[in-house]
């Protein structure tokens, strides 16, 4: 029997819990983009985008689109109070200068020591780096939101990334459709696990040896 894994929205919901009050956050493309839908209403989070905007709001409905207002994924944004605009050089200076508290990115592979590969599948020959390499190095905390395994069910949490690196030793936390895993100095710590899954089952889909947290629990939303 195939066991049910957590959906993309649930992964995003779990990541949203990690964002501290008042944080400046940069969300990557894919599951990370969904995170803003699940931030508690009483929490103030400022969103930063490489397209050159800070404190942006929700995506715009088709009728209220402004052609000049987009996020880094090219989606149209609503006009909201408190936005600030700047050029690309400043958008990346903010990241590199350590002013972005948290970034949430997708990944192809994450290594045991927090190495991140998310810009190139070697078979394609050409990658898509965008702003990921800047965020991996510059953001104070890098959270990865991804499926635990690839399309062929091979582990994406690996001993060493075989795909080209985006950054070395940069990932702090990985939230997958099976588990919440912290990248600690001693290795990958399994902290939370999807309902009905056992640590042995998660281990069988993870290349490095997982360290079980003393307070290992079911994924908490």
């Amino acid at each position: 029997m195939v066991k049910e894994r957590l959906g993309r929205d649930i992964i995003a919901m779990r990541v949203a819990k990690e964002l501290p009050e008042g944080a400046v956050v940069n969300l990557g493309i894919g599951i990370p983009t969904l995170v803003s839908n699940f931030v508690a209403e009483d929490k103030t989070v400022g969103y930063h985008s490489e397209s050159g905007v800070l404190n942006y709001g929700s995506l715009a409905e088709e009728s209220e689109r402004d052609y000049d207002l987009i996020n880094a994924g090219g989606q149209f944004l609503q006009w909201v109070p408190g936005m600030a605009f700047f050029g690309s050089e400043e958008a990346f200076a903010m990241i590199r200068g350590g002013h972005v508290d948290v970034t949430v990115l997708g990944a192809l592979q994450v290594s045991e020591r927090g190495g991140l590969a998310n810009w190139m599948v070697p078979q394609r020959g050409v990658g898509n780096i965008g702003g990921a390499m800047d965020l991996a190095v510059g953001a104070k905390r890098v959270i990865i939101a991804m499926e635990h395994t690839d399309r062929e069910d091979r582990p994406k949490l690996v001993k060493e990334c075989s795909f080209p690196l985006t950054g070395r030793r940069c990932v702090s936390l990985v939230v997958t459709d099976l588990a919440v895993i912290e990248v600690a100095p001693e290795g990958l710590v399994l902290k939370e696990i999807a309902p009905d899954w056992t640590p042995e089952e998660v281990q069988s889909l993870t290349e490095p040896k997982l360290i079980l947290a003393p307070d290992l629990k079911e994924v908490e939303l």
Binding site: E50, S88, F92, R96, N128, D134
Partner: peptide
């Protein structure tokens, strides 16, 4: 030639 965005800007 692929260049990360922040490096391109800088």
């Amino acid at each position: 030639e692929m260049v990360p965005q922040g490096i391109l800007a800088e």
